[in-house]
Design a protein around this nucleic acid. Structure first.
Length: 749
DNA sequence: GTCGTTGCGTTTTTT
DNA sequence: ACGCAACGAC
């Protein structure tokens, strides 16, 4: 019965079996975090310490919840019912529906999406006569969200904090916005957390109810919690009588979401928050080779303020290749190099789906996509296309598929009763039976049922209308294809056909009649979808594109190179990982450095750590000497993270490496110009221009500068990297030197 | 309402 | 340079 424990190593086993009192499991990358979490969950249930309803298990994403649910069921050998397992927001929504009246809502409140939130806030701002040019609504929306992340309602905002938005009226607008939400019986995502924390704080009886209910609390990715999530957990876990059985699993070295409110401090402070807490470190890594682990460990060791943990190889055979660091001339050469390497690995029998290109920012994927297309390598871009995951979009696409391909049973099944046409289980079973028996598609089966008169009344009528709409659409598409005479008539014909189909089938009407606050947004999405059709010549072409872009369907298993951001790669692993663009300014990102200072730098370094630890067997890091940013080419310096990798585990390659070799033997004028000292021991590339670091020192008081937003001006004062500038149009401003460019004085006129 | 022009921003993303 | 959003004109 306890054989599931035997498959754990001693540290994992300690994490599973330490059931009493607070427990922090520090789980390094690839150390079996998910296994520990799910095994612990199952162990609590199997040991009889709690029933499913007495365990609260929290994750950040729906995907993580789903996985946990599935894996617990596997260990238990059956699906589990009645679990309090879900995302922070899903669980809070569930709680809030039980106690909504305490915050002036009813249990059927609606949850607003981002668009709705912004629309609503704009309305409120306009009522306050705020000039939304000067104070853009998204800025204030962000501020309100950050306040909510910190657990602050309108009453919690001090006057001192209310200076940066809407001319000091932010607090008042925030209050009105909340009032409007209440009138609409709606909550935004932040409210789900904020309201329930309010209730737990102000209603001891409600809190006591949950204290009695939850014997164990499990939290995944604790390093990503924000303040209000932390408060919620603390309220639920800290009780007077007994010690809190709260178990948080996380990795401070993988905290990469501070920009959306996550507080690394939460995990660093755990032992203070929960006195008597046990700390278990999982450091045995079962994913990567020794060189990869050594490189990742050396890199992350440059961070301060860590709980401290070192990954050690746990695989039987952890020997492996050194990391490759490639210096290339420009981004084109970088894409070429990565492409070549992928091709070579592919030739050697490595599957493409075991390769991933991980970039810092979304726009970087484009160069690699183009290269993949040229080489004919199939790829997929992960993330960024969540649009296609919305229910109304999936429905609409199912309509298109069912029209385009009458044998597409999956699509037809999705839409046959959306909107409701009275097709219930019975009718559906009958359809299945005929389809199977006659070996015909569902659409044919429907026609058969309509002919035989088996279906009656409203169902018959409704299905008849649907089939007619689909049939007319199909016919119109066929005509569009034949009519090759008039280009303009043919082009865009599929667009109108789809519009007509969505109208005639009653699908659009369904959302128009829907009175929930998110219905208008969904109609907008549908319009957007039809607009996207215009980019394709045929409906088939569009559907092909969509099927490539849509995740988790039939295409998920195809052998493709993975392209994604470093953030998107968290939690994933690949045999071969490519890490391009390791250049100062790009990675670490200049903007993060400007806004976040040393904390920002450390988060970027954690991102680099996440990137390297995604690799099982091989990692290639590259940096280009020249990169095109917006309009013009800029020379760039290799990222400081490259210098932080241990030399003994790294192999240099590429054109720049050769140039460097040459320079070492024959020093030139360049070696005098660039001091080769201290924290940058490696030789700079021969073609390197004095880039960002050098430029700031050239801006002195009296210099004429140009700023993207404020225009031309003259520097009147300087303090470290902050400049006082008197702009011609915008007046006096204090700006960061990285935002202005020096201008030659004759260029002024 | 829909089209065309202007102007601004341009890291990372989940719920 | 480019794309998208917001605004004004028809």
């Amino acid at each position: 019965m306890t054989d599931y424990l035997d498959r754990l190593n001693p540290e994992q086993r300690a994490a599973v079996e330490t059931l009493d009192g607070p427990l922090l499991v520090l789980a390094g990358a690839g150390t079996g975090k998910t296994r520990v979490l799910t095994t612990r969950f199952a162990h609590i249930l199997l040991s009889g310490r709690a029933s499913p309803g007495q365990v609260l298990a929290v994750t950040f994403t729906n995907k993580a919840s789903r996985e946990m649910r599935e894996r617990v069921a596997v260990i238990l050998g059956r699906p589990v019912e009645g679990l309090w397992l879900g995302t922070f927001h899903a669980l809070c929504a569930r709680m809030l529906r039980r106690h909504a009246e305490y915050v002036g809502l009813t249990s059927s409140f609606t949850i607003l999406d981002t668009d709705d939130q912004l629309r609503l806030l704009k309305q409120v701002m306009e009522l306050h006569r705020i000039d939304t040019k000067r104070w853009p609504a998204p800025g204030l929306m962000g501020a309100i969200q950050r306040w909510k992340d910190r657990g602050l309602g309108p009453g919690g905002i001090t006057a001192a904090e209310d200076t940066d938005y809407a001319g000091g009226k932010a607090r008042q607008i925030y209050a009105d916005y909340q009032e409007r939400l209440r009138q609409l019986n709606a909550a935004d995502f932040g409210d789900l957390m904020l309201h329930i924390v309010d209730i737990l704080r102000s209603r001891p009886d409600v809190l006591a109810q949950y204290h009695r209910m939850f014997r164990y609390i499990l939290v995944d990715e604790y390093q990503d919690t924000n303040t209000v999530q932390y408060l919620w957990l603390r309220l639920l876990a800290q009780r007077e009588a007994t010690a809190a059985n709260i178990c948080c699993v996380g990795d401070d070295d993988q905290s990469i979401y501070s920009w959306r409110g996550a507080e690394v401090e939460n995990i660093l402070r755990f032992e203070k928050d929960f006195p008597g807490a046990t700390l278990v470190k999982l450091e045995s890594n079962y994913r990567s080779t020794a060189p990869i682990l050594a490189a990742a460990s050396a890199l992350i060791a440059h961070n301060e303020g860590r709980l401290g943990k070192t990954l050690r190889p746990g695989l039987a055979d952890a020997a492996g290749e050194k990391l490759l660091v490639a210096s290339v001339w420009d981004s084109d050469e970088e894409a070429r190099l990565v492409g070549e390497r992928i091709e070579a690995l592919h030739r050697d029998g490595h599957t493409l789906s075991e390769m991933a290109i991980l970039v810092r920012a979304g726009f970087q994927t484009r160069a690699f996509e183009e290269r993949m297309i040229t080489l004919g390598l199939p790829y997929r871009v992960i993330g960024g296309m969540r649009f296609y995951e919305r229910a109304e979009i999936r429905d609409a696409i199912a309509y298109m598929r069912a029209m385009n391909q009458p044998s597409d049973d999956l699509a037809f099944e999705r839409i046959v009763n959306v909107p409701r046409r009275g097709v219930g289980d019975v009718a559906l079973q009958a359809l299945h039976q005929i389809a199977r028996a006659e070996r015909i598609p569902m659409t044919q089966a429907v026609l058969r049922l309509l002919e035989t008169g088996t279906l009656k009344g409203r169902v018959r009528e409704q299905l008849g209308l649907l089939m007619a709409a689909l049939g007319r659409g199909r016919e119109a598409l066929a005509h569009g294809r034949q009519g090759d005479g008039d280009e303009r008539l043919a082009g865009g014909a599929h667009l109108r056909v789809v519009e007509t189909l969505l109208e005639e089938s009653g699908y659009v009407e369904m959302w128009r009649r829907d009175k929930s606050p998110d219905a208008p947004g969904r109609l907008d999405n549908l319009k957007e979808l039809v607009r996207a059709l215009a980019d394709f010549d045929t409906l088939g072409g569009f559907l092909e594109h969509v099927s490539l872009v849509m995740e988790n369907d039939e295409n998920a298993g195809a052998d493709r190179v993975n392209l994604m951001t470093l953030h998107g790669a968290k939690g994933l692993e690949f045999d071969n990982v490519f890490l391009p663009g390791w250049e100062e300014g790009l990675f670490p990102s200049q903007r993060t450095l400007d806004e976040g200072g040393n904390k920002g730098l450390e988060e970027e370094r954690r991102l680099a750590y996440v990137g390297i630890t995604r690799a099982r067997k091989r990692a290639l890091i590259s940096h280009a000497a020249n990169r095109r940013i917006y309009a013009n080419w800029q020379s760039s310096v290799p990222s400081r993270f490259v210098d932080e990798l241990p030399a003994e585990h790294v192999e240099q390659m590429g054109s720049a490496a050769m140039a460097r070799e040459q320079m070492r033997h024959a020093p030139t004028v360049f070696s005098g110009q660039f001091p080769l000292v201290a924290h940058r021991p490696r030789v700079v590339e021969a073609w390197e221009q004095p880039a960002r670091p050098a430029r700031s020192s050239t801006i002195a008081v009296g210099a004429r500068v140009f700023h993207q937003k404020f225009g031309y001006g003259v520097v009147t004062g300087a303090d470290d990297n902050r400049l006082d500038v008197e702009f011609e149009k915008a007046g006096f401003k204090r700006v960061l030197d990285s935002y202005v460019d020096p201008v030659a004085s004759e260029a002024a006129s």
